[in-house]
Simulated scan of single mutants.
Amino acid sequence: MRVQFVDANDTLAAVTEELLRSCDLPVGINRNPSIKPEDLPGILDGAEIMIVDHTALPASVAESCKGLKHVVFLGTGARSYMNPEELSRYDIRVHTIKGYGDTAVAECTIALMWASAKSFSEMDRGMREGSWLRRDGVQLTGKTLGLIGFGGIAAEVARMALGCGMTVLAWNRTPKVHQGVQFVSLEKLLSDSHVVSLHLLLNDDTKNFLSRERIGVMRPGAILINTARGALVDEGAMIEALRLGRIAHAGLDVFTVEPLPAGHPLTGLPNVTLSAHSAFRTPEASENLIGAALDHCRRIIATGR
């Protein structure tokens, strides 16, 4: 079986090449991260296994990828780029990778929370434009953080927040127990939390999970953090709540459309801190991610599944 990494940026390409030095895997690397879906059949050139970072794979394109049997998606959010059920009709199986960057994403979540609480991005922009723009911050010690979804990333966020003296609430779709964390109803979490942070996987059930109605239940003046997936939130309702001040500030690493288009309403709001879907981008997380992807490839080559 032949493997093709179809959209490697410079960082991931370098990590892949370094890890391949210690193993014998037939992996080709396309060092152009800006390809289009229609480029995939030519780039794959009959490869049976595709490693993909962020390029969409519609079923109509997959049909033209002769020989493709496995897609190793670099992360957990494959459904943002492809439909695994549709691909299965072409005997293509999608593999995802969990846990590679829990600490990295958790650190970004905490960083966005603090930056949002202190209005750093607004003051930074003002000072670069020549204004001595002073803003009152929110003291987070003693405040309540609510985590919607509780997997590995949320557990790391909880550890860090508890160390900062915060109370941590959580809601999960299935029952869980975690030391120091109070699991409560979604309504109580939304109404009681000074900061709400999203940690759900995106699927048909969770799209627009933070709806207009649920935003309306949030504590007035709360901070919203999203390092999961943009489509988990009703974007229009979030923007309206930010304009009205019902949400005091949003720290966002993910968006409904990526890259975020120029002139998007979020870019004109002063009470938003933006990050370019980079929460997972650390050397440690990249090595974990590519190492796990290559492990998937070894298993597939050895077992055929």
Rank of each mutant, 00 (worst) to 15 (best):
H95C: 10
L202D: 10
T11S: 13
L274G: 06
D53V: 00
V94Y: 02
T227A: 11
V71Y: 00
R89A: 13
H194A: 08
L260I: 12
C23N: 08
G46W: 02
L252V: 13
S131Q: 14
L198T: 04
L252H: 14
Q179C: 13
I110H: 04
N9Y: 11
I148M: 08
D136K: 09
S278K: 12
S191R: 15
L147Q: 07
V272H: 05
Q182Y: 13
A13C: 05
V61N: 00
N288P: 07
L242H: 06
V15Y: 05
L232S: 06
H70V: 14
G230Q: 06
I223M: 08
L202A: 06
L19Q: 12
A250T: 14
M113L: 11
D24C: 09
G163S: 00
F209R: 06
V27E: 03
F120C: 01
K66L: 08
G245Q: 10
A231C: 05
V254M: 02
D192P: 14
L162Q: 10
V257S: 14
R128K: 11
D53S: 11
A104G: 05
C297E: 02
V27N: 01
D91K: 03
H296F: 12
L162H: 02
R229W: 03
N9C: 07
A106H: 04
L186F: 07
I97V: 07
S88A: 08
P33D: 04
F5S: 05
I92K: 05
D53C: 06
G42I: 02
I51P: 01
I300C: 03
S197H: 03
L147E: 10
M113T: 15
G230A: 02
P261I: 09
R246H: 15
G126F: 00
N83F: 10
K188Y: 14
A262S: 15
A170D: 03
Q139P: 04
A56D: 09
S197P: 01
A47R: 02
D7S: 01
I290T: 01
N32I: 10
L252D: 13
L147A: 04
N30V: 10
R128P: 02
D102T: 08
E235C: 09
P41E: 07
G236T: 15
A117G: 11
C23H: 07
N32K: 11
E85S: 11
A62Q: 01
R79L: 08
F73Q: 01
T282M: 05
R125E: 12
I51S: 01
L44N: 00
F209M: 05
V52W: 00
A222F: 07
G304A: 06
A262Y: 15
W171I: 02
R173Q: 10
F255H: 12
Q179I: 15
C297V: 14
D102H: 11
N32Q: 11
G101I: 04
V105A: 11
M50V: 01
N203R: 02
V181F: 11
L289E: 03
M113P: 10
T16A: 11
V168P: 05
S275L: 15
E258I: 10
E107Y: 06
D24T: 14
I49Y: 04
R214W: 08
L20E: 01
I290S: 03
E122T: 12
P26D: 09
V217F: 15
A117T: 13
L200H: 08
V233D: 07
G149F: 05
V3C: 10
L200E: 13
V138M: 12
C164K: 09
P37A: 00
L169V: 07
S121I: 12
N203I: 06
H54R: 14
R219D: 05
T11L: 12
